[in-house]
């Protein structure tokens, strides 16, 4: 009996070779961060000590920034981490909450302007946020002048210019189009009968949403939460533009400032801070990959 032979090994491995070559720059970049984090100096990817001996000079001193403020331009790394965390969590809670409600309404309720609202959010989603920076600046300045809401809220400072709340507010607004469309897509896939059954069983519309509909789209909520959290954690442009004081900066803006310093850049510390910022993201990805894939599975099915 003759067996059907697959293509020869070379043609079979060609796609892999191509992919590896193309991803090499990124992989090397991460590798460099990893190596230089733990070494005094680097020649390319090879750690060297002060005298230039190869494969010497491995050290943990780059991580001194965790307790030594002078390494990070006199900003406390813990305060910055807390700020970044507040932004990430604030963004996640805001986006998920609003998207869940808006997505449900857009999926289930017929109201005038529904279609145009949907297409408008889609346009907003493709808007580069850089173009909005100046307009947003004026809005935040105005909010800052409102008593209490502007700058008088503990923890997030308020919703005005130069507060964590302001950054969260703007980030939520920019993230919402994606979130709403995503949630709408997930709600679209829940059967109408389920909702009707709940209404007949005695639920109010509100309760139907919360007790019957929301549990059906848990995978979608998980995916959106993770996605939003990561967006908030790594966000740079908005915090950089609307937060001026150092104590309110985030990890991303710190990295940027360390890079643009006039004195010689300490690449070892820079790499260490970069890796420090990367760790939660990596851990998150490892445990939540499965949910993140839902974004693409669920998002595609959604229609207007």
């Amino acid at each position: 009996m003759k067996e059907i032979r697959s293509r020869n090994p070379f043609t079979r491995s060609l796609p892999y070779i191509l992919l590896v070559v193309l991803s090499l720059p990124i992989i090397l970049g991460y590798l460099w961060i990893l190596v230089s984090t733990f070494s005094t100096r680097c020649y390319g990817l090879i750690p060297v000590d002060q005298q230039g001996n190869y494969f010497k000079g491995l050290t943990l001193s780059n991580w001194a920034f965790l307790y030594d403020k002078s390494k990070t331009l006199n900003a406390s790394i813990w305060l910055l981490t807390l700020n970044t965390l507040i932004i990430a969590i604030g963004l996640t809670v805001g986006v998920v909450l609003v998207s869940m409600m808006a997505g449900y309404a857009l999926s289930r309720i017929k109201f005038p302007g529904r279609k145009s609202f949907l297409s408008l959010t889609l346009i907003l989603h493709s808007f580069p946020s850089v173009t909005l920076l100046i307009a947003i600046y004026f809005v935040l300045r105005w909010i800052a002048s409102v008593p209490v809401i502007g700058r008088g809220i503990p923890l997030i400072g308020g919703f005005g210019y130069n507060t964590l709340g302001g950054v969260i507010l703007v980030s939520i607004a920019l993230q919402l189009p994606l979130g709403i469309w995503l949630m709408k897509g997930f709600f679209d896939n829940v059967s109408w009968d389920l909702e009707r059954a709940a209404l007949i069983d005695g639920c109010s519309r509100w309760r139907t949403w919360w007790q019957i509909m929301v549990p059906q789209i848990k995978p979608g909520i998980a995916a959106l939460s993770i996605f939003s959290f990561m967006e908030g954690w790594k966000s740079f442009l908005i915090p950089y533009s609307f937060m001026t004081s150092q104590t309110k900066a985030t990890l991303s803006t710190l990295l940027n400032e360390m890079l643009s310093e006039t004195s010689p850049v300490n690449y070892g510390t820079l790499a260490a801070v970069g890796l420090y910022q990367l760790i939660p993201v990596l851990v998150f990805y490892i445990f939540t990959q499965k949910y993140l894939l839902n974004i693409f599975a669920g998002g595609v099915k959604g229609t207007a």
Binding site: S191, D193, L194, A197, Q216
Partner: peptide
């Protein structure tokens, strides 16, 4: 009258049981 006040029971083609 909203559905819950009509004293009705309904059976659906898709069964519409609450999956969770």
């Amino acid at each position: 009258l909203p559905p819950k006040d009509r004293d009705i029971g309904m059976v659906f083609q898709s069964y519409a049981l609450y999956p969770h």
